[in-house]
């Protein structure tokens, strides 16, 4: 039997048909309107991003092209053409590694506890609401907290305005993001997998370690690295705790004083000489390359773990 066209249906159901006004052309018009609007939104953001990138590269590229190696390996200087960001680059690497060492295990641990172990009562709900709120607290507040707690109160351990103080402050800043990301990754694991594990006589930890983690780990890693990407660009809390803006030595240990890329860039931008503005643009390019490399690592790890599944 061939499919009858809609007109033949109409005759059979003529009594009901009067109540319907399909108005197809009008509905399709709204489709077009919304498709255009969303396309415009995408187009606009891409254009803005492109303009940003192009202008930065335009400003900064000459500095990188003339003396790329020198720019990476020189300490800051009063002369813009001799100034480099070695201390800031090394400081950023030190700080980021320390942040990751503190924030990853604590954040993932807290996320696992809240999602897999904690019973659902008013206390855990309170913690949950607070963590979600903490993720939205302005970073300068964390800077003030870090200043009081790590720089002043814990000075004997942290060494004051040190890499350790800065890293701990940034770790606090991104902990809520890692916790929320971990919980979301764990929540995306179907409960049927847990049930299957329990039904085979697995303990809770065996279910989490052997069955839940392998599925959740790509999401957990992605969340963590995105959180670290946020930390790498933070300036305000580090200035608050007193990171230096001009440093002509490399950190020797976690208690050393330090600077990081965004602070160095901020410093150069605020100088009057045009040469330093070029340096700032070049520094932004380096920072973006580091950031992109980190995001690339996130994608790489995600794909790697997903293939194993």
């Amino acid at each position: 039997m061939t499919t009858p066209d809609s007109q033949t249906f109409n005759k059979d159901q003529s009594t009901q048909e009067q109540y319907f006004t399909p108005n197809l052309s009008g509905r399709y018009k709204w489709d077009t309107v919304f498709a255009s609007f969303t396309w415009l939104a995408v187009g606009l953001s891409v254009v803005i991003l492109a303009v940003l990138l192009i202008s930065v590269v335009w400003d900064g590229f000459p500095r990188l092209a003339s003396d790329f190696w020198g720019f990476l390996t020189n300490f800051p200087s009063r002369k813009p053409e001799q100034a480099g960001l070695l201390s800031a680059l090394v400081g950023t690497v030190w700080v980021m590694i320390t942040v990751a060492i503190f924030a990853f295990p604590i954040g993932v641990g807290a996320g696992v506890y809240l999602e897999e172990f904690a019973t659902d009562n008013w206390f855990t709900k309170l913690i949950e609401v607070n963590i979600n709120n903490l993720a939205g607290v302005p970073s300068i507040i964390y800077g003030l907290l870090g200043l009081q707690l790590f720089v002043r109160f814990l000075e004997p351990m942290t060494g004051g305005r040190s890499i350790l103080s800065g890293a701990l402050t940034l770790a606090l800043l991104i902990l809520p993001i890692i916790i929320v990301g971990t919980r979301e990754a764990l929540r995306a694991v179907p409960d049927s997998i847990r049930q299957a594990g329990f039904a085979l006589g697995a303990t809770r930890w065996q279910v989490i370690w052997d069955q839940v983690f392998p599925i959740a780990i790509p999401g957990i890693l992605t969340g963590t690295i995105l959180a670290l990407s946020r930390a790498i660009g933070e300036t305000a809390p580090l200035i608050t705790i007193g990171a230096l803006t001009f440093i002509s030595f490399l950190p020797e240990n976690l208690q050393s004083q330090f600077t990081v890329l965004p602070i160095q860039i901020y410093n150069w931008v605020s100088r009057p000489q045009a040469g330093f503005h070029t340096n700032a643009a070049a520094g932004i390019i380096i920072l973006m390359v580091v950031l992109l490399a980190m995001n690339g690592l996130a994608i790489f790890l995600r794909n790697k773990f997903q293939k194993r599944g």
């Binding site: 179907p190 049927s192 997998i193 049930q195 299957a196 594990g197 039904a199 085979l200 006589g201 697995a202 303990t203 065996q206 052997d210 069955q211 392998p214 599925i215 599944g309």
Partner: peptide, 24 residues
């Protein structure tokens, strides 16, 4: 033991699906 309404194999190899319960 228990078998569920919707088949819920672990997203692992067939071998691992069976070995898991025995191993733990």
């Amino acid at each position: 033991g228990m078998v569920f309404q919707k088949p819920n194999p672990f997203p692992k190899s067939i071998f691992e699906n069976i070995a898991f319960g025995a191993r733990i």
